[in-house]
Amino acid sequence: MSILECNKLAKTFGDVQSLKDVSFAIEGKGCIGFLGANGAGKTTTIRIITGLAKPTSGTVKVVGYDVMKDALHIRKEIGYCPQAPAFYNDMTAEQWMHWVGKIFKLGKKEIAARTEELLKLCGIWEARHRAIGGFSGGMKQRLGIAQALINRPKLLVLDEPVSALDPMGRYDVLKLIEKLKSDMTIFMSTHILDDVERVADHIVIIDKGSVLLSQPMDELKSSYKESMIHLTIEPTTVDLVSILQTEPVFKKIHHEGNSFTIECGDIGAANEKLPQLLVSHGIRFTNYRVAEANLEQIFMKVVQS
């Protein structure tokens, strides 16, 4: 059974079509990176998944239940932290956690234990007696994540969880996600690709309201394994670009002076061919480095295609 399944989701706001075709399915535990540029439809999709917005058409199933029909049941199984979490500002962090615990019908002892555990985990235990109204954006984000975990959700939905955090805060939250992903499915939207690359096991890319790709990270990297060779040569009169263009293994060649970046289809074949060509044309190189495509390059490629 899929933990999260979106099927042909569409959403229109007046004349603007925010979502056109969002379809993907997630199975098992781990972290799912939901990537897209600003305005791609990430937050709208998340609001539909959490039952806060209704799709114009299409369906969403969370742990097997239809969001439109069983919203209350699903809300028992999910934890949600929006991009800018808001609270009742007169409450303290501890009071908020206790209140959320009561909503999930947890016992008093369990609420107290979970509150301590989660506030410590998210690094705001010391501030538990302070009114939330006085919290910084980063502290609210941490509290938002802590409260989303109180019911031990099967699906944790985080909308841009690190956007309001400083570098230390980002590091802490990503570490927390890495720790949590073995116990639950974490669906995390972001446009900070470095963060996703670090923690995500599965990638969903959305652009202009349509899902362009949904693949496990390792599969994605191997299917976009258009590795590159960075090459720096000594000055020469030989036209290396023309030579490389005759070989189909070298797909694209970018160069600036004596520095070349060569996109290759098959890195094995390219590694065999390139040194031979350089030697046969008497070209000496000072730097030869093979690099795999990173998520940013894959993202750009998927979106631009």
Binding site: R47, G51, L52, K76, I78, Y80, P82, A86, I103, F104
Partner: peptide
């Protein structure tokens, strides 16, 4: 308007 409603209705509250 403050966004707190989204936090509330993401929980099992009818």
């Amino acid at each position: 308007a403050s966004g707190v409603m989204a936090m509330v209705f993401a929980k099992p509250i009818s």
